[in-house]
Amino acid sequence: MVNIERDFHMASGEGEGSYAKYSRRQTIVIHETKPVVEKATIEVYRALLPKTMVIADLGCSSSSGPNTMLFMSHIIGIIADLCSKLDEHDAVELQFLNDLPGNDFNQLFRSLENIKNSATADHKGGRLPSYYISGLPKSYYSRLFPRHSVHLFHSSYCLHWRSQVPEGLVTSGKSSLDEENIYIRSKSNTTPLVVKLFQEQFRKNLSLFLELRHEELVEGGQMVLALLGRKDEDVYNGIVNKEKVKSFNLPVYGPSVDEVKEIILQQSNMFDLDHIKLFEANWDPFDDSEGDVVHDISSSSLNITTGIRTVLESIIASHFGETILDELFQEFWCVVAKHLAREKTKYAVIVMSLKKI
């Protein structure tokens, strides 16, 4: 069975086949959420006027490399502008980069050298606030910070990952209730019980995440979260399938907007839902075109395959061994190309902003 804390991490490094190289879709998501992040940051700062503002990027490997720099330099620039307007020149910012221990924190810290230049370019006037950046290798489904210590949480492209494969899905340690699927496939292939187990695991994880962050946020603190979801209420529209796999399951679940709202409303004594929106991003992270036509199937299928490999290869290798990876993803490339010849696929991404009550 997959152990998410032990087995899961993004493909390290900065070259071909690295997650940083193929994380452009996450760049798109960060740009899409930029106004939400800016609004939350300004509201928290103006309401609390903290001398030390603590900001945590949870699941930071999903914004690795240039994306880490993009988010953090944006935040520093926002605070610099606010300091100038309020004549607060001694404001200090502490940022924490959090992810599972197996991720490439060295690569993340190497990318920090460019933050000052990027923030300076964004902030045309005045000096930048002091800032200090630390790494925190631990699951965000556990307590990370002291109570009432964080002003702003950010998480991009992470919360669709579950803390574990749903309990009860693997019946004997070898076989799965989902038979030859590694995820929810279709009504004819996936039983209602499997769907229920994934939904319950999602509810359990998100509820726990909200409870933990509520303890850690200061009064009036906020969170901006972006995760993969789905457009329709019909859960069977999500497809991730491999043949001849009976003891392997992906701990992933893409909720609908209504499912997310329902869980937050159940915790209505903790957070106000300030903003929630669903938008779509092309499956190919390097395809910025509009419409439903794939203009270069060969190139797009390779981009998609390599991007997915940078995310999933650690989990697959932990279960099947590394020797199958090249052959497996070569076959996957062919499957993706055939699919793109029929239709252009897009991801649904849910963005939300919550304020601690």
Rank of each mutant, 00 (worst) to 15 (best):
S149M: 08
I264T: 07
S142Q: 08
K246M: 07
N3I: 08
R46I: 04
A121I: 10
G307P: 08
A341M: 06
E233V: 03
F8S: 02
L217D: 13
Q107C: 14
E16F: 13
S268C: 11
V218K: 02
S134H: 07
L136E: 02
I315K: 04
A337E: 13
D81Y: 02
H319K: 11
I115C: 11
I75W: 05
S300Y: 09
T190C: 03
I4D: 00
E259L: 00
D99Q: 00
D178C: 13
I297Y: 05
L152I: 14
S318Y: 04
N189M: 14
V29W: 02
Q222G: 04
T171N: 01
S64D: 04
V170A: 11
K261E: 12
G238M: 12
N67P: 04
M72S: 15
L206T: 13
L159P: 03
Y347V: 00
H148I: 06
A281Y: 06
S247D: 15
K338W: 01
A11P: 01
I239Q: 04
L177F: 03
L273Q: 10
T120F: 01
E262T: 12
A91S: 06
F105L: 12
S247G: 15
V351N: 12
L217R: 06
V252D: 01
K242E: 15
E327L: 01
G13V: 02
T41P: 03
D7P: 03
E14I: 06
R342M: 04
F145G: 00
V170M: 14
A56G: 08
L265P: 00
L128Y: 08
L193C: 04
L159A: 09
V335N: 15
D104A: 08
M72R: 09
E215C: 06
L217V: 02
S18C: 01
I182Q: 04
I115E: 11
K187R: 14
V257T: 12
N106C: 12
H9V: 07
E331Q: 04
S268W: 04
G125Q: 15
R25N: 08
K116W: 07
I264Y: 10
T27C: 05
L108T: 03
K344A: 01
S298H: 12
Y131E: 12
V165F: 05
S130L: 15
V349Q: 10
V349I: 15
K355M: 07
